[in-house]
Nucleic acid binder design. Structure first.
Length: 931
DNA sequence: GCAAGGTC
């Protein structure tokens, strides 16, 4: 059997399709992994890398005293399977295979992925022949030829890839751990370092430094406006920027009529049709139509999966000869772009345009199938259209512009004006993304004179360089060789999620700057693109066989050790420096009480709050929602009233929660509860606010004398306020308990949120679970509840309240559970139902039951029933059972009536007993007679 | 918990 292993499922499917030809092709799914069968062959797709490198066991604890970050440098490495199902399926087929062909992508990572597959095959089958098929496009022609002329795996090339993996892991992991530990950061706040991310961050930081240190220079621009045939013409002084005002002014005063046309230069300008899309060019073009890099890639991936466009991750800008451009064109006739396709067939250029980079991995991004707008959403359609139009543009002729440049003389001062007109539309007919702007000048001829309508002297300023946009940064990364076509856009996402940079345009945060500066000082190598460039050249040597992986890795490790010498000697400084510089990230303004700084802080667990840096001298603080709702971060906006930065809670995978000004939020969220205090007045609230007391909690917990002093009130009022505050706190506590309770029991339904039910409950004066338990179903039915729900809620409320009451009376929880299970849920049950019956139903010892009944009754002020000893109780029961006609079920009824022995039965009044037991008088008299 | 590289 012939086993074919491709890099991904779709590739396996398409390869199988081409190889099967007219033979029957079937597919099969095992454990979520597809395989494609034809003749005696099976094709399976990997999922890129199916194993990953990691450190051997024992290095997972970051804070280990023994395995410090430095020890990672020389730690052993293992390959961990990441796609176990795929691996086991490959092993299964490998055992039966007589030939295995590795058909992964034709680039370095593809070769490494191929080698990983090779090793998996070998582990299951020592002898099977394994060859390699190479192709740059999954077209029938290329695939058939690749399988007709197989080669061998290039182990040198794969080894170059492994070198990269090891160096990346060792540098990345050791430095990430070191710097995170030094700055005391863990969990979501680690400070990551890497060969690609750190130089990328450094570029953003460097740009920000240029912007910060930029000193704008004033300059002046001189221009004039003239006119011919009512067409206005603007002309600029040929000096360009005047750096000295006086010079500009002199030139302006010298500018005099007549305005003489000195020269008219006409020419043409070629406007080349664009080259085929590689990933970077695609991202840039998508950026121009308003898509972020990651969105563009996500959509392109979708279009690829649905067969509308070719593989979107490529470095190639030259169509391979095997790509049938005519076939694509005829396919596109079935799209709304049919008119453009027809135009191409009449105007097509001889050869398609070609870019500078040809690579072996995949063809440039091109349309792969016809699509209609109804098959996808609007954004996806925009992307599809872009790919189609770009493809058509690469087959279109260049555009041509007619240009005109006029030189004027005005009293010895020279001015110039340029115009342009699209002469040949060319590719612009189909590629409509940049508008062709004509700037038409009227016909002018040498020697002609014109009037000067206006002379304009404008003061301007030089501008700092702009911050990077995502696509500009991706272009820059590509130029420097950082990252790959598949990873560049992810790197930016990584920097954002580490909170090193903020998006659009990219701006470094304090953390980003601090980390970059530290690395530049102590580990400069990893902050520069040179590291990648050197690595690339070493990998080239490994591929050629002139250098070994071992030597390259060893050299790299040696260098990293030297860096660690410096780092470890300065660990404390490095940590303090980063912590100091990033503290500002959490300072949101001045403390209204003492003027020191207010800072976002977090305590153990999930609690977070805003506190004063002068604590404990100043205890001003504002509580924030728990971090489970999101981590509090400072925003740029500042509250006009309080001068504090806004705060927002961010959590992965959810929308951010905007708190706004934390003090405004604090005030408004506490106002309602302050107003619940009976003794409060609006005037008093203003007074409280003016001395920075905002919550009931603060009043309740504040020293009485301090409260008097601050509010200038007497002891009587302060006492009242504190009493009120304590009551309100208790009320709020109970309400919050009630909320939780209702939430737990009543499921939310459409049109009936928990909030709606809860508001109705509180509005009707129910403030605690206890209130609820004393309520009735009629009231509850008004609260958007069904009868069933009202009943459940009432029952649960009673049960919770009673349980708490009985616990307070001293009934132990374990016994309580038994009473509840038997259906005795209220204190009344304990006083009204005879202990004998309670004991029988719960299985609890009679003496224990008496003890509990005693506790409950005395607490409720009810007389306790007369005690019976265990011995008397048991013998009484036996006596009763010995009477003819008394069985277990009648014992239950007798116990319920308080009859526990023969004597009591004999002396009982039969009519009373009838009532209590529900038995007929006749029957009672019969058993009484048996006694 | 760490990198960068595949792919979904």
């Amino acid at each position: 059997m012939h086993l074919i292993i491709a890099e991904k499922n779709i590739a396996a499917q398409r390869i199988a399709g081409f190889l099967a030809g007219t033979s029957k092709l079937t597919s099969d799914k095992t454990g979520g992994v597809n395989s494609y069968h034809f003749n005696d062959s099976v094709a399976i797709g990997l999922r890129g890398h199916v194993v990953e490198v990691d450190f051997e066991e024992g290095y997972s604890n970051w804070r280990s005293e023994v395995h410090t970050p430095r020890t990672l440098i020389d730690a052993g490495m293992i390959k961990k399977p990441t796609e176990k199902k795929i691996i086991s399926l490959i092993k299964k087929y490998a055992k039966k295979a007589t030939l295995v062909t590795i058909a992964t992508d034709y680039d370095r990572e593809g070769e490494l992925i191929g080698k990983e597959a090779y090793e998996i095959v070998r582990s299951a089958n020592k002898d099977v022949r394994i060859n390699r098929a190479i192709f740059s496009a999954i077209t029938r022609q290329e695939i058939l030829s690749a399988f007709d002329n197989p080669t061998e795996i290039d182990f040198n090339l794969a080894s170059a890839g492994e070198t990269r993996q090891e160096i990346d892991l060792v540098w990345g992991a050791s430095l990430t751990r070191f710097i995170s530990i030094a700055a005391k950061r863990g969990g979501n706040n680690i400070l990551s370092v890497g060969r690609v991310q750190s130089p990328t961050l450094s570029m953003i930081v460097e740009r920000e430094r240029e912007i910060d240190s930029f000193i704008p220079q004033p300059y002046w621009m001189l221009g004039l406006i003239t006119e011919k045939n009512s067409i206005e013409i603007e002309a600029r002084h040929t000096n360009g920027k005047f750096w000295v005002y006086d010079e500009a002014k002199t030139a302006k005063s010298a500018t005099k009529e007549p305005l003489l046309v000195k020269e008219v230069r006409e020419g043409t300008k070629n406007d080349s049709a664009p080259t085929p899309f590689d990933t970077t060019a695609f991202i840039v073009a998508a950026g121009r139509i308003g898509l972020s890099a990651s969105n563009a890639m996500r959509i392109a991936e979708e279009l690829y999966m649905n067969g509308f466009i070719s593989y979107p991750r490529t470095d190639n800008t030259i169509y391979p000869p095997s790509l049938d451009l005519n076939e694509i064109l005829s396919e596109l006739k079935r799209t709304p772009f049919v008119k453009d396709v027809e135009w191409i067939s009449e105007n097509r250029r001889k050869e398609p345009t070609r870019g500078k980079k040809s690579s072996t991995d995949h063809p440039p991004i091109h349309p792969a199938g016809a699509a209609k707008p109804s098959q996808m959403n609007e954004q996806a359609w925009k992307v599809y259209e872009l790919v189609v139009r770009r493809f058509l543009a690469t087959l279109s002729p260049d555009a041509r512009w007619k240009t005109m440049k006029i030189l004027f003389d005005a009293g010895g001062e020279e001015y110039t004006s340029t115009g342009q007109k699209l002469e040949t539309e060319g590719y612009r007919h189909v590629y409509t993304y940049s508008q062709a702007k004509d700037q038409i000048l009227p016909d002018l001829s040498k020697g002609e004179t014109l009037p000067i309508k206006e002379i304009v002297l404008e003061e301007k300023e030089t501008q700092p360089p702009p911050r990077y946009s995502q696509s500009r940064l991706i272009q820059q990364m590509e130029e420097l060789g950082l990252g790959t076509k598949s990873t560049r856009h992810d790197v930016i996402g990584k920097l954002v999620s580490r909170r090193y940079v903020e998006e659009s345009p990219l701006k470094p945060t304090l953390v980003g700057k601090a980390v970059t500066d530290t690395l530049e000082e102590f580990a400069a190598h990893i902050t520069k693109p040179d590291m990648t460039q050197t690595l690339e050249s070493h990998m080239e040597d490994i591929k050629k066989g002139t250098r070994s992986k071992e030597i390259v890795v060893e050299e790299s490790k040696k260098m990293l050790h030297e860096i660690f010498d410096e780092l470890e000697a300065n660990e404390e400084n490095i940590g303090n420096e980063i912590m100091d510089r990033t503290a500002e990230e959490r300072i949101i303004g001045k403390c209204p009480v003492c003027g020191h700084s207010l800072m976002i802080r977090s305590s153990k667990g999930m609690a977070q709050f805003i506190g004063c840096t002068a604590y404990p001298d100043c205890s001003f603080n504002i509580g924030l929602p728990s971090a489970q709702w999101g981590k509090a971060i400072k925003e740029d906006n500042v509250c006009e009233t309080h001068g504090l930065n806004y705060v927002r809670l961010i959590r992965k995978g959810s929308r951010p929660w905007d708190i706004g000004c934390p003090l405004c939020n604090h005030i408004s969220s506490n106002l309602e509860s302050l107003r619940l205090m009976p003794s409060i007045t609006e005037k008093l609230i203003d007074k409280l606010h003016s001395v920075h007391i905002y919550s009931v909690y603060e009043i309740a917990n504040m020293d009485k004398s301090i409260l008097e002093e601050k509010l200038e009130i007497n002891s009587q009022i302060s006492e009242m306020l504190k009493k009120d505050a304590e009551d309100i706190l208790e009320l709020l506590r109970k309400r919050s308990e009630l909320r939780k309770f209702v939430r737990k029991i009543i499921p939310p339904r459409k049109g009936r949120s928990h909030a709606k039910v809860l508001n109705a409950v509180i509005d009707s004066g129910i403030n605690s679970i206890e209130d609820l338990s004393k309520s009735n179903e009629k009231i509850l039915l008004k609260m958007h509840l069904s009868e069933q729900e009202a009943e459940t809620l009432l029952y649960e409320a009673k049960s919770v309240t009673n349980k708490e009451l009985l616990r307070n009376y001293g009934v132990p929880a374990v016994s309580l559970k038994k009473y509840f299970e038997a259906g005795f849920i209220s204190p009344d049950d304990f006083c009204n139902i005879h202990p004998a019956y309670l004991s029988l139903k719960t299985g609890l010892n009679i003496e224990t039951v008496f003890k509990h009944v005693n506790l409950v009754c005395s607490n409720m002020g009810v007389k306790t029933p007369e005690k019976i000893s265990k011995k008397a109780f048991e013998s009484g029961k036996e006596e009763l059972l010995s009477i003819n006609g008394i069985g277990e079920s009648m014992i239950e009824k007798l116990f319920f009536a308080g009859i526990t022995d023969i004597n009591m039965l004999k002396n009982a009044d039969s009519s009373v007993l009838t009532q209590k037991t529900g038995l007929s008088e006749e029957k009672i008299q019969k058993i009484q007679a048996e006694c």
